[in-house]
Design a protein around this nucleic acid. Structure first.
Lengths: 234, 234
DNA sequence: TACACAAAATTATAAGATAAATCAGGGCCA
DNA sequence: TGGCCCTGATTTATCTTATAATTTTGTGTA
């Protein structure tokens, strides 16, 4: 689950309900009443109540006396909440959500790279380099290469020195895992080492503009791939 | 407060505690125990518990038996949560936070503008235009001009068609309100109408690249202003 | 028709009891 | 001495039962 120290009833119910809501399980019908939650999940009122309150805090639900609890429209969800992005990923794959994820990355990561070029210290750069090396050394081991890829991108977010960017690490994590599952299907395609290396070199050189462009190139390619994988209907 | 339908004890306590935590009120000392919260705020355990659970959902707190409840390090806060950004704004002003806000805008808004250039429909464009006109017509009325400025930027987020961008409206709102209070102090400086018009024109023309650059120009100027206002120490 | 009022349903709040987790200390054994 | 286990204490977690507050819906009356 997600708690730092094992699972609890409340956090378990939070996960279950969060996933269900995000998957649209309550779209037509109304959300269960407090009493119904208790019987359906054989939980106490406290547990049901606190799970609902946490989902409310994440913008997924709202409750008022007599009217009951209802699922909020997507426009009110805290989409950038780490839990919410995870639930979004865990539901059946959708091209649309992946494109939207990648558009966010296309906005954030190039700017993060350019800031990193100005601000990164020795340790930050080493972390980025470790990610790149991990991608190189494990090119054949998919899971490890993916892990290194994630480390590379997250290290740049951290090197930007802006905690808001660092905040998006969970989304990057999510998006990259989806990305890999697609690019593998497309053409045995793997993350381009040279493109990633270009980002690192620009950051080391303090070349903000170059780092931004190099990162843009990586993400534009990602965005193109999704188009070729399965044309959007929308 | 923040509830859709009036205030409640739980939401009131949520606000109070959220603001206190963000302001660093519990930085040295430990967070009050459940029982202490009840007595300090004369609330029932249910209320205290649910407020704490909501703050936990926003990443500000964590709780475990015997150890008590503690404030999480900033790196775990859900900084992009609308409530959290609002609390951040409401605390005494900090140059750092404003710069960080603006860096996020510098990442998001130009890309949003470029997407809007491709996707915006008639209604979206009208909303953007309304914002621009509002800025023009109310140039002397500060509050109304600010409101129009916000509408302009938020309309572009919506026109991007990406709900994740739209999600950042609260942060934009917050950042712009801070921005105005600074730019007014600097030199009677007001938001540049021509710069905003350039964005609109590019979007209408379907010029993604141009829209991106025009929006970048607006935000780079904002970022420069903060530097001139009061040099960062850090 | 319009207004006031009563009834019902559901969340909000309160309060007490028990369970679970974990930290600190002490005692026991090698 | 050093390590291990047990016990106790503390704090959150969970369960339970009441009561209050809110708001919709209907109902009756002028």
């Amino acid at each position: 689950m997600r708690t730092p120290h094992g699972v609890s009833l409340t956090y378990g119910l939070l996960e279950t309900l969060g996933q269900s809501i995000v998957s649209g399980a309550y779209d037509g019908r109304g959300f269960p009443t407090e009493a119904e939650l208790c019987t359906q999940f054989s939980a106490s009122r406290t547990v049901a109540r606190e799970a609902v309150k946490m989902l409310t805090a994440k913008g997924l639900l709202s409750a008022r006396p007599r009217q009951g609890t209802k699922v909020e429209p997507v426009s009110r969800w805290n989409l950038l909440d780490p839990d919410v992005t995870r639930w979004l990923m865990e539901r059946p794959f959708s091209n649309t959500i992946y494109r939207e994820f990648t558009e966010v990355r296309l906005a954030i990561e190039p700017v993060a790279a350019s800031l990193a070029a100005t601000r990164a210290n020795r340790k930050d750069i080493q972390a980025i380099r470790d990610g790149l090396n991990g991608m190189r050394d494990n090119a054949s081991e998919h899971e490890q290469a993916l892990q290194a890829d994630i480390e590379f991108h997250v290290a740049i977010l951290r090197a930007s020195g802006n905690p808001f960017f660092w905040q998006l690490r969970e989304l990057i994590n999510t998006a990259l895992r989806i990305s890999i599952s697609i690019t593998n299907k497309v053409a045995g395609h793997t993350a381009s080492i040279p493109a990633h290396e270009a980002v690192l070199l620009a950051i080391e050189a303090g070349d903000a503009e170059g780092a931004q462009l190099a990162m843009q190139a990586i993400l534009r390619e990602s965005l193109d791939l999704i188009g070729t994988y399965q044309p959007e209907l929308a």
